[in-house]
């Protein structure tokens, strides 16, 4: 599914050279729910950006669904993101000027799906997160939990191969966070691979597999048999 081997990511400024990831290797199988933890600045976000094809790496190899992405053009990477990856962000990243329907519509627009099919799928996705009757609402009219549900609907609507979630509950209170987690687990149980970056140990404990990163390298990679496995 996702296979990183010996990935290096170096940020250069005029004077400083920072290794965000060093000889980083990780293999995620289809259907897994992996949490990524680590302190601030350890390289979690860099990993997420590389995994999501948001950034390029300095060296190493990354096979996404068996396809080597290192030599892809910007437009090809955009197409891969659109077709294979669903993103969930800490601050939701909804378009404040668009209603829920149009927000969920965004990835489908870039895929060039016909209007009729788009409508069906958007309604399905919104129904799946329990917001079917709020299509014409603006994000600002929703609570944080509801907004994150919209973001999840947007991530799922394109039927991606896996979800990349960046602290999806970071901006939510614990009750709401629990709801969102349950939703993600439910999605995982239906077969979607999920990679989730978090700093919350209790969430990490719930997942099947927890990868801990420190200083750009994997410190530990624990499989958790007690997790509510699929």
């Amino acid at each position: 599914m996702l296979k990183m081997t010996g990935i290096n990511k170096v940020f250069r400024t005029d004077t400083v050279q920072t290794h965000a990831l060093r000889d980083f290797s990780l293999h995620v199988e289809e259907g897994e729910f992996v949490t990524i933890t680590g302190p601030s600045g350890c390289g979690k976000t860099t990993f997420l950006n590389l995994a999501g094809l948001l950034e390029t790496y300095t060296s190493g190899q990354y096979l996404l669904d068996g396809e080597d992405v290192s030599s892809l053009s910007d437009a090809q990477r955009a197409r891969l993101r659109n077709q294979k990856i669903g993103f969930i962000f800490q601050s939701f990243n909804l378009m404040p000027d668009l209603n829920l329907f149009d927000n969920v519509d965004v990835p489908l627009r870039y895929r060039g799906v016909s209007a009729k099919i788009r409508k069906e799928r958007i309604e399905q996705a919104l129904a799946a997160v329990g917001l079917a009757n709020r299509q014409r609402h603006l994000p600002s009219q929703l609570s944080g939990g509801q907004q994150q549900r919209v973001a999840i609907a947007r991530a799922l609507v394109g039927e991606p191969r896996f979800l990349l979630a960046d602290e999806p509950t970071g901006n939510l209170d614990s009750n709401t966070a629990e709801g969102v987690m349950e939703l993600l687990e439910q999605i995982n149980q239906q077969g979607t691979t999920i990679i989730m970056v978090t700093h919350d140990p209790s969430l990490a404990a719930r997942s099947q597999r927890n990868v801990h990163i420190l200083d750009g390298q994997i410190k530990s990679d624990d499989r958790n048999s007690k997790a509510r496995a699929a």
Partner: peptide, 16 residues
């Protein structure tokens, strides 16, 4: 800017 980044993440090409 952030919206644009998000759109790019969701699959928008530079041309889009």
């Amino acid at each position: 800017r952030k919206q644009i980044g998000t759109r790019r993440a969701l699959g928008a090409t530079r041309f889009s």
